[in-house]
Each structure stands twice: as structure tokens, then as C-alpha cells.
């Protein structure tokens, strides 16, 4: 049975979660269009379907907490507070992008927002998250590190090395595995001897739980609890969020390895309309208010595209900048 929303958060915050998910979805769908037009090039991995994880988890963290993610990270950056226009501009490869057009889709970063980067080597961000957590503890900061990664990362050496390390050194890291069941086209049971990812942490004495990653409130509650545990104990915690990407792995992937029936089952669990229904049912927002939010997000994304289009390319001498201090 679903918890009553109002028992978890005040109305304003509940509506905000909706807005963040809608913004993420609109942004991603706009990216697909811009990719088709040739404005966004290179790799593009879209997050549509997984919005409840980024929105719910980020809302449960403090602003000082560090966040790291993989290469499907536009939504994580947006819900953390990145300006849509600076993210879009980065994807266009323009000088006004949040990384000056040098990172692109897979390498968003904002020191100001404590968003410590999108990383494109599967599992590469886990040791870095441990290091950030060590620095916080060493400097006696009230700060934890949340590290997102996909189910594809759990068979990398860095996954096992980092879980062992985080527990051994007692580091305040919250590991969040977004299990969307596929590493590109390989389903998790075809790559993992134990496909129930969160159970793997018993080998490292790290408490873990799984959560419905299509339910933004469930993610929020689980991450809130876990983050408090990490903050109090100074030790790692592990969350597996079960979710689904509605699109292929990247724009190059038509996702033919998944059946239409499976896709339909998950589409019916789309986190955005389901959450909208709950907001309406509890009288937290009206149809008109939700429509206004959608319009606002659409406008914000359109503005981001215009900004990116109008932005200049990086100057040629930028090619030698930002390599060494």
C-alpha cells in the first residue's frame, strides 16, 4: 500500500519533486530531438523512465553532500540545481556549457553544487567517491558522499574494491545502484551470478536495501533513512533502486533486446503520471497547477535550446587550457 504523501513531506516539496521529474523528462526528450537535428553529437544516454531515482534521492541529501554519477547523469545534475541552459549548452559543445564544452553529455560537473562529476568508465566513480568521503571525514566536515552507478558497474573490480574499502576505512558513502536491468543489451541475470544486487553487500558487511525506483516518495524515504544512517555512523550504506529506462542505452540503440510486453509493463509504472495521480488524489495539486508546471518546464527547456544555439563555440586557444594548473 502506498504511503500517504503528506505524511512524508510538506505540499510544496511534494510538488517540487513532480516539477523536477517533469523537467528531467522534458529535457531528455528535447535532447533526443536535438540529437536527431545534429545539434547534439557524440554519445547521448537518456534518463527517461528513471526520474524518480534522481529526484527522490537528491531531495533527501543535504546541499553540502557530494554527488557523483555515471554517464546517464543529466537529470542528476538538473535536480541538483544545474541550470538547464548550461547543461544543454554543454551538450551542444558550446563555450557557455557547464564544463566549457569540454566534457559533453557524459561529464557534467559543478564544484559550486557539489556535483562531483559524471564518469564514463563503468564503475570508475566508486573509488573517487570513497576518496571524497575520506577527505570529508579527515577535515571533520558534516558531509556524506552519494555515489550513483548502474547495474552494469557491479561486476567491475572497482565496485568490490570500493565497497571493501569504504567499510574498512569507515567512510561516509551512500552507494546508490540504479538497477534498470540492462547493461547496454545484456540483462542483469546474464551478467551477474547473483542478480539481486543489494544482497552482494553482505560480503563487505554493508547494510543494504532495495527500493522501488519508479516511486519517487519511496526513493526519497529510503535515501533519507540511509543518508541519516551514514551521517550518524560514518559508515557506508547501499541502496538498490529498481527502475527502467524507456529508451535504449544510447541514441544508437533501438533496444530490440527487450520485448514490447516488458516495455508496456514498465510504461504503466511511469513515475511521472503515477505520481501526478497521487498528488491529485490527495488534493495536493490541481490539474491546472500540474499543467502549469509542465508548461513551465517545456518553456525552460525551449529556452535552454535557444541559449545553446545562440552560444559561441569555444575559441581555438581553449584547446590548451584547463589541462594543467
Amino acid at each position: 500500500m502506498e504511503a500517504r504523501l503528506r505524511a512524508v513531506l510538506p505540499d510544496h516539496d511534494l510538488v517540487r519533486l513532480y516539477e523536477q521529474m517533469v523537467l528531467s523528462r522534458e529535457f531528455e526528450e528535447s535532447c533526443a530531438e536535438q540529437y536527431a537535428k545534429g545539434h547534439i553529437t557524440g554519445f547521448l544516454h537518456l534518463y527517461s523512465g528513471q526520474e524518480a531515482v534522481a529526484a527522490g534521492a537528491t531531495a533527501a541529501l543535504h546541499k553540502d553532500d557530494y554527488i557523483l554519477s555515471a554517464y546517464r547523469e543529466h537529470a542528476q545534475a538538473l535536480v541538483r540545481g544545474a541550470e538547464p541552459k548550461r547543461v544543454m549548452s554543454e551538450l551542444f559543445g558550446k563555450a557557455t556549457g557547464m564544463c566549457k564544452g569540454k566534457g559533453g553529455s557524459m561529464h557534467l560537473f559543478s564544484a559550486e553544487l557539489n556535483f562531483m562529476g559524471g564518469y564514463a568508465i563503468v564503475g570508475g566513480q566508486l573509488p573517487i567517491a570513497c576518496g571524497l568521503a575520506f577527505s570529508s571525514r579527515y577535515r571533520q566536515e558534516d558531509r556524506i558522499t552519494a555515489c550513483f552507478f548502474g547495474d552494469g558497474a557491479v561486476n567491475q573490480g572497482t565496485f568490490h574494491e570500493s565497497l571493501n574499502w569504504a567499510r574498512l576505512w569507515e567512510l561516509p558513502v551512500l552507494f546508490i545502484c540504479e538497477n534498470n536491468f540492462y547493461g547496454i543489451g545484456t540483462e542483469v541475470h546474464r551478467s551477474s551470478a547473483l542478480p539481486t544486487v543489494h544482497k552482494r553487500t553482505c560480503g563487505y558487511d554493508i547494510p543494504s536495501e532495495k527500493v522501488d525506483g519508479m516511486d519517487v516518495l519511496a526513493v526519497f524515504k529510503a535515501v533519507k533513512y540511509a543518508a541519516e544512517k551514514v551521517r550518524e555512523s560514518g559508515r557506508p550504506y547501499f541502496i538498490e533502486a529498481l527502475t527502467y529506462r524507456f529508451r535504449g542505452h544510447s541514441m544508437a540503440d533501438p533496444a530490440k533486446y527487450r520485448s514490447a510486453a516488458e516495455h508496456e509493463v514498465w510504461k504503466a509504472r511511469d513515475p511521472i503520471p503515477n505520481y501526478a495521480r497521487r498528488l491529485l488524489a490527495e488534493g495536493i495539486a490541481t490539474e491546472a497547477q500540474l499543467a502549469a508546471i509542465r508548461d513551465r518546464c517545456v518553456a525552460l527547456v525551449a529556452e535552454a535550446v535557444s541559449f545553446a544555439e545562440a552560444s559561441p563555440w569555444p575559441a581555438a586557444d581553449e584547446v590548451w587550457e584547463d589541462i594543467y594548473v
Binding site: Y66, M116, G124, L126, P127, I128, A129, C130, G131, L132, A133, F134, S135, S136, Y138, R139, G157, T158, E161, S162, N164, W165, L168, W169
Partner: peptide, 24 residues
């Protein structure tokens, strides 16, 4: 600090610590 025999992570943790303001 002694570390596990996990060379990739020895470097990765140092990277994170450096990002967090230390000089590992």
C-alpha cells in the same frame, strides 16, 4: 594508512581525496 591490495582503487581514492582538498 595501509591499504588493501587494490591498486586501481588506491589511486581512485587518492583522486577523490585530492578533489576534496587533501594532498594524498
Amino acid at each position: 594508512r595501509d591499504t588493501p591490495i587494490s591498486e586501481n582503487t588506491i589511486v581512485g581514492v587518492a583522486i577523490g581525496a585530492a578533489m576534496g582538498g587533501l594532498r594524498p
